[in-house]
Design a binder for these strands. Structure first.
Length: 429
RNA sequence: GGUGAGAUGGCUGAGUGGUCGAAAGCACUGGUCUUGAAAACCAGCAAGGGUUUAUAGCCCUUCUAGAGUUCAAAUCUCUAUCUCACCGCCA
C-alpha cells in the first residue's frame, strides 16, 4: 500500500487535488479514479460484511461446542462462506492494486509560495552572496588544478579501480576533502543544534520505500544481490536518518528532532547521460554532510528557511560566492512541497552550480513511513513533517575551493575557516 | 558459519485452537480524598482502515513479516527477518 498523499484528498476533493497536481505538470485521470473509488467502496463493504458474518458464525460454533451441542448443521451453514469471502477479497485486492498503481505515481502537492515554471530556467533567484573573484590569469578548472597538486585528483586511477565516474583523491587534496566534512559537522553540531549520527550505508527496501526512492526511482540506486537479502547503497543520508522515525510515535515534546551525518552517497546516474562526465561534479560515489529535521506540521516551512540558512552558513564560512534559488513547479522533486537549491560559483564554468538542495517534504514521507507524534493537545498520533538538505556536498565544495582559490602558480589558498582543520596550512600545492 | 532459545500493547510480562484486541504489573490520563502534594481508592488508557458532518456509534484488520491448515489462529505448519546464549572465525 503506497499511500503518498492523503487518500481522502482523492475521495473528497479530487478536482482541486488534480488542479494542484497539474501545476507541476502531472495529469491525474480523475474519471478513472472516481470510478475505481466507487468500486473500492462497494467491494470493501462487501468483504467486510462477509468477514463479519464469518466471525459471528465462528463464534456461535465455538459456543455451541462448549455446550456440547451438535455442530454439524452449523458447519454446513458456513460452508459457502469461505469461497464467497475469497472471491470478494480477490475483487477488492484487484481494485486496490489498480488504485495503488495510480496513487503511487502521484507526486507531492506543491506549496503555494512556489513559482510556476516549466524547467530549471524558471527557477527564481532569491539571494546572492559574495562577489565572484576577478582573475588576472587564465582560470583552470578543478580537474587541472587538482592534477597539478601532486596528482591529487586522479580520475584515471578511479577508472582503473572501478570505472567511469569514480575518482581517487591523493595527499593534500584528500586531506582537504576530509577537513571539509569535519568543518561542516562541527558547525552543524556546535552552532546549529544538530545531533551527529553515524548510520548504515546499506539499507533495506523498506527504508527506500519510506523516503520515496522506491518504487519509482530504483534505477537510480546501486543494489546488492545476495541470495537471501537485498541491500541498497544509500543515495543520500536522508534515507537512513529519516527512516529512524519509521513506524515510530514520538512525543510532541521531543520535537523538533535535528540530525546530521557525514556519509558517502552512491548514485547510478542512470538518467544523466553524458552530462558532467569531466571532473568531480557528478560521480557514482561522493561524500555529503546531510541535515534532517523532523518537525510539527505547523513548523515545517519555518524550519525549511532555517535549514537552508544552515547550509548557506558553510559557504559563508568558506567565503565562497553563492546564490539561492527556489525551484519552480516544473523543476521541483517528486516528494517535495518546496525546495531551495544553493548554487556555488564555479569560475571555470563561469556559472553557479548546485551544491545543496533543501526540501520540505511535508507529510509525504511521514505518511509512507507512519512517522508520527502524539499531540499533547489531542493525545492522538499525527503525521510528522520531514525536511532534509545537504550541508554540503563535500566533493562539490572541494571543487569550488580548488577553482575559486586557485593562484597563478598552480597552488590553492586554503580558506581561513578551514586552516585549523589543515594543521594551520594556508595553502596547498 | 554451527547449535539452542526467543519475538505479544509505551515498558515488563501472562496466554498452546473458540466469547482474546489480548490477564497482571509499571507508566500515563481523569476523578474521589487533601490546605497543597504524596499515598490510597475508583475509572480510563493500542494502532491502521471502512462507513459517517463526527476525534459519536457500528464494522473490518493487526500479537515481527509473508504464506498455509481450520467454520474459527497470538496459539498449529512452512519461509524470511531480527534478538539473545554458547561454540567456531574475524577487524
Amino acid at each position: 500500500m503506497n499511500k503518498m498523499l492523503d487518500p481522502k484528498l482523492f475521495r473528497n476533493d479530487i478536482e482541486a487535488t488534480a488542479a494542484q497536481l497539474a501545476k507541476r505538470g502531472f495529469s491525474l485521470d480523475t474519471a478513472l479514479l472516481i470510478d475505481l473509488e466507487e468500486q473500492r467502496k462497494a467491494f470493501q463493504i462487501k468483504t467486510q460484511e462477509l468477514q463479519n458474518q464469518r466471525n459471528t458464525r465462528s463464534k456461535s460454533i465455538g459456543q455451541a461446542k462448549a455446550r456440547g451441542e451438535d455442530i454439524q448443521p452449523l458447519l454446513a451453514e458456513v460452508s459457502q462462506l469461505g469461497a464467497d469471502l475469497d472471491a470478494a477479497k480477490t475483487e477488492q485486492d484487484d481494485v486496490l492494486a489498480k488504485i495503488d498503481d495510480i496513487l503511487s505515481a502521484v507526486p507531492n502537492l506543491i506549496d503555494h509560495s512556489v513559482p510556476d515554471g516549466a524547467s530549471e530556467d524558471d527557477n527564481v533567484e532569491i539571494k546572492r552572496w559574495g562577489t565572484p573573484r576577478i582573475f588576472d590569469f587564465e582560470v583552470k578548472d578543478h580537474v587541472d588544478v587538482g592534477a597539478g597538486i601532486g596528482n591529487g585528483l586522479d580520475f584515471e586511477s578511479g577508472a582503473k579501480l572501478a570505472g567511469t565516474r569514480f575518482a581517487v583523491l591523493r595527499g593534500q587534496i584528500a586531506k582537504m576533502h576530509r577537513a571539509l566534512a569535519q568543518l561542516m559537522l562541527d558547525v552543524h553540531t556546535e552552532e546549529h543544534g544538530y545531533q551527529e549520527m553515524y548510520v548504515p550505508y546499506l539499507v533495506n527496501q523498506d527504508s527506500l520505500y519510506g523516503t520515496g526512492q522506491l518504487p519509482k526511482f530504483g534505477e537510480d540506486l546501486f543494489h546488492t544481490d545476495l541470495s537471501n537479502k537485498k541491500f541498497s547503497l544509500i543515495p543520500t543520508a536522508e534515507v537512513p536518518l529519516t527512516n529512524l522515525l519509521r513506524n515510530e510515535i514520538v512525543e510532541e515534546t521531543e520535537l523538533p528532532i535535528k540530525m546530521c551525518a557525514h556519509t558517502p552517497c552512491f548514485r547510478s546516474e542512470a538518467g544523466s547521460g553524458g552530462r558532467d562526465i569531466r571532473g568531480l561534479i557528478r560521480q557514482h560515489q561522493f561524500d555529503k554532510v546531510e541535515m534532517v529535521q523532523i518537525v510539527k506540521p505547523e513548523d515545517s516551512f519555518t524550519a525549511l528557511e532555517a535549514l537552508t540558512g544552515h547550509a548557506e552558513k558553510i559557504l559563508e564560512r568558506l567565503e565562497l560566492p553563492y546564490r539561492t534559488v527556489i525551484l519552480c513547479t516544473g523543476d521541483i522533486g517528486f516528494s517535495a512541497t518546496k525546495t531551495f537549491d544553493i548554487e556555488v560559483w564555479l569560475p571555470a564554468q563561469n556559472t553557479y552550480r548546485e551544491i545543496s538542495s533543501c526540501s520540505n517534504m511535508g507529510d509525504f514521507q511521514a505518511r509512507r513511513m507512519q512517522a508520527r507524534f502524539r499531540s499533547t493537545e489531542t493525545k492522538r498520533p499525527e503525521l510528522l513533517h520531514t525536511l532534509n538538505g545537504s550541508g554540503l556536498a563535500v566533493g562539490r565544495t572541494l571543487v569550488a575551493i580548488l577553482e575559486n582559490y586557485q593562484q597563478a602558480d598552480g597552488s590553492v589558498k586554503i580558506p581561513t575557516a578551514l586552516q585549523p582543520y589543515m594543521n594551520g596550512l594556508t595553502q596547498i600545492g
